[in-house]
Every structure is written in C-alpha cells, then in structure tokens.
Design a protein around this nucleic acid. Structure first.
Lengths: 235, 235
DNA sequence: TGTACATCAGTGAACGCGCGTTCACTGATGTAC
DNA sequence: TGTACATCAGTGAACGCGCGTTCACTGATGTAC
C-alpha cells in the first residue's frame, strides 16, 4: 500500500528538519552562522551525518537559497490568488507582499538579492528571475501592460529589441509562456522601471540606507506604486 | 624643524599599508577574507602587532567602512568640481560617477550599502548619509530643486513635513548648511525618488539581479536620469 | 655630546575555539528467497 | 514466517586548518638632563 518506506519517511523528515534549522540559523545569526556543525548541533546529530543529504556546505547553502526563492514565489502567488480580477490590484498586492516579506526576512533578502555574484551566479539569477517573471508574465501575456513610451518619459532610450529577445529567453527559461508580441519595447521598459523602483525602495528600507530616517514608509511605498501605475496609464 | 618624529612617520606609513592590504583583501576575496591574520601576513608582520592600530577586528572593519565612504565622497566631489555650472550636469555627473564606482568596487559597495543593519548600524548610516546629502545639499540650498508635486505624480502622499525635520536633522548631522526653507516637501520627495531609482538601478546592476541580462546598461541608466530630470522640470 | 630612562612597534608562543571533511564503523531498516 | 544479505542513516575519532586575542618579551626610537 504505502509505497513510501519507513526509511524514506524518516529521511524526508530529517531533510525537512535540516532545512528548518538552517533557515533558523540564517534568520537569527546571519549567513556566517549557517555551518554544518551548527546545524548538526541544533538537530542533535553529528556533522558528518549531513553528508548523507548534501555534498558540501556550499551545496547546502545553494539549496537553501533556492528554497527561499521558492517559498517567496509561493507566498507571493498565494497573495495574488486572493485578489480578484483587476490587474492593478494584483500587481499592487504582489509588490506590497514582496516588501512585507523582505522586511520580515532581512537576512534571507540579503542572501538572495544582495550577494555579489560569485562564479556560479547564473543559477541564482535564474532562480530569482523565476519569481519576478513568473508573476509579471501572465499580465504581460494578456497585454495588460502598455507603458507610455511615446510621451515625455523616454530619452535617448537605446534599442530595446535586444532586451525583447533577452526577456523572451528569460521567460522561456523560467517556463512561462508569453507570446513574443506581448514583449514590446514599452512592456520591457515598464518592467525595468517597475523593478528598479520596487527593488530600490525595498532594499533601502531593509538595509536602513535611506539618507534619513523614513516615516510613513508604508504610504511612501504606496505612493511610489501609484506613481508607477500612473506611468502605464492605469492610475 | 620636523615636528613629526621618525616614529610617527613609520606609524603613519604602517597604518596606510594596513588599510591598503585590508582593502585589497576585501576587493579580491570578499569581506570574509579581511582577517587580522591575513592582513598581517600580507604586511609581513605578526597578527598581534595590529592591536597597536586597532582595538579589534570589528574596529578595523568599521574604520575600513568609514574610509571607503570617505573615498567615495572625495571621488564624487572631485568629479563634480570638474563640471561647470549647470545643476543638471552636476547631478548627472555625480550619479554616473556613483554607478561607475559601484561597478568597479562591488565588494566595497556590498559592504557599505547592502549589509543588514547590525546593532551599531547608526554610525554607518550617518557616514553614508554624509556622502549623498553632502552632494545634494548645496543644490537644495540654492533652491535648484523644484519637484512637480502638484502634478499627476503624487498619490496619497503622506505628510512630508515630518521628513522635512528628519532631513534637516540629517543635514546638520552631516555638517551641511541647508536653510530650512529649502527643505520643502517637494524637495524632500524629489530626493527620495532620485535616491530610490539611483540605488535601485546601481544595486541591481552590481548584484546582477535584473530579471534578465541587461544590454546597453549605460544608456538605460542615462535614460533613467533624464526621466528623473524631466520630473523636476529640467529635462 | 653623552647617558639614563621612557615609550612603544613588533615578536613569538600560547590559549581555546569552530570549522569542513575523511574514514572505518555500527546497527536498524528493507529485500529476496 | 524465517533467514541471509544489502542498504544506508548516523557515529565518533581524527585530519589540518585558520581564526581573534592575551601576554611577557625585545629592541629600536625618542626624551630629559
């Protein structure tokens, strides 16, 4: 009946425990505290036992990173599902959820979004791209995004068709279907601006690097979102 | 004659060498590689000798941070001096120089601008604020900044006078004279928007976290600057 | 100019620590007959 | 159902490593007379 053996169940449970304790160490004491020995200590096993689950510490950290991304994506999507219909409401909800997550998980945010690229940076890049593109993709697919690139907002803008291709590649890597005709330059440019400001505000807030102490940060953030919405003609 | 003794000269030289090697280690192998023993090794002295110059490793890292900020400020100001007159040219030059510096010094950038706040975060905050405010301050003082807060760009914007006070405090902490009447809400809001986008773009580029591979990053950055300029009526 | 003393940069040994990783092993769980 | 064997999660000792920090010290530099 149960195709899952006792051993497999135990293994899965231990795997879960390892990840939980690794996360807890990251959250509470920063990335340097995520060591094999510390994890083993918390679990009440010996360090070499971890080699039954991960090839090395580096491997564990990489998987931890992926898991964080996956959790974030899940959380953001869950938030979206509870919002009905309107494009603007959905994307606002997504951005607010992202900010909330980042503020609640500063160490995870720093690990995933603000670690200088190492040699193996490509993997992380793709992992992360999946989160953002996976959420924006569907909107682009239905052509909901029409930025005002003809207006006064564009200056010396380079040929965006090159990015059109790059974006199409990124979407397909992330396994998201977006018809090429939805990736018009204005949509590409919209995506860039939105992401720059979202990331900028959130990172500055998480790292406490605004040039002075913010007040009403929630409302400033919302004001930024409305400004962005206005720029794509949806205010 | 020479009021500087031989000992003092030697000490200053060693101090310089320590900082140089610490910087080199940071640049080449990341912040974890900046250890007392590694620095001593590079210098050809023993680790305990460093305690003649710094109280602890933490102290050394903090001072390194400050030095990086100071260097950055110097570099940015130097860039500014070579640009004549026009407000827009100056602030563009400053932003481009900041981006250039960040791309050329990713580890330093990560250390100073993207390290989660520790308990003693206040110091760094002030140090950093000095760089940005020191450059924008003079422009604000001459009233060069007039953002279009009456137009369509403002939504649900909270009372900015609270920030007016915070900004004034930050300016005075940084030792910059800006008359209170220059800190109108529109100037405050201008400053926030400018910083969010500048930081957002630069950090994303440094960390390689744009959702797809950028092309023509220089021109995209410039396009962002022009967009900002347009929003304060100076395009 | 010479001597006695004070300063203090740098030494070298030692401390206790935690780390990743290896290896031969034990013993419970699973499988084939 | 019982027995023989295979699998494999976890052990415990050991490896070599680098770290920050302390301490009593040496010896060159600086100072006061």
């Amino acid at each position: 009946m149960t195709e899952v053996t006792r051993r497999e169940r135990l293994r899965a449970a231990t795997e879960l425990e390892i990840r939980q304790h690794a996360r807890a160490l990251l959250v509470e004491h920063g990335r340097d505290a995520v060591t094999l020995r510390a994890i083993a200590r918390e679990l009440g096993i010996t360090a070499p036992a971890l080699y039954r689950y991960y090839e090395s510490r580096e491997d564990l950290l990489r998987q931890l990173c992926d898991e964080i991304c996956a959790d974030l994506a899940t959380e953001l999507h869950a938030g979206l599902d509870s919002v009905d219909e309107a494009f603007l409401d959905k994307i606002f909800a997504m951005c607010r959820a992202f900010r909330r997550w980042a503020l609640a998980h500063p160490e995870e945010f720093a690990l995933v979004f603000a670690t200088p690229q190492d040699e193996s940076g490509k993997r992380q890049h793709d992992q992360f791209a999946g989160v953002f593109l996976g959420i924006v993709g569907p909107f682009m697919a239905e052509g909901a995004i029409k930025a005002d690139t003809e207006g006064a907002l564009l200056f010396e803008l380079p040929d965006l068709s090159a990015h059109q291709d790059a974006l199409a590649a990124a979407f397909s890597t992330a396994g998201i279907d977006v018809p090429p005709e939805a990736l018009r330059p204005d949509a590409v440019y919209f995506l860039l601006r939105w992401w720059v400001r979202l990331y900028g505000h959130v990172a500055l807030e998480v790292f406490g690097r605004f040039p002075f102490d913010l007040k009403y940060a929630d409302r400033l953030f919302d004001s930024m979102l409305h400004e962005l919405a206005h720029e794509i003609g949806l205010a």
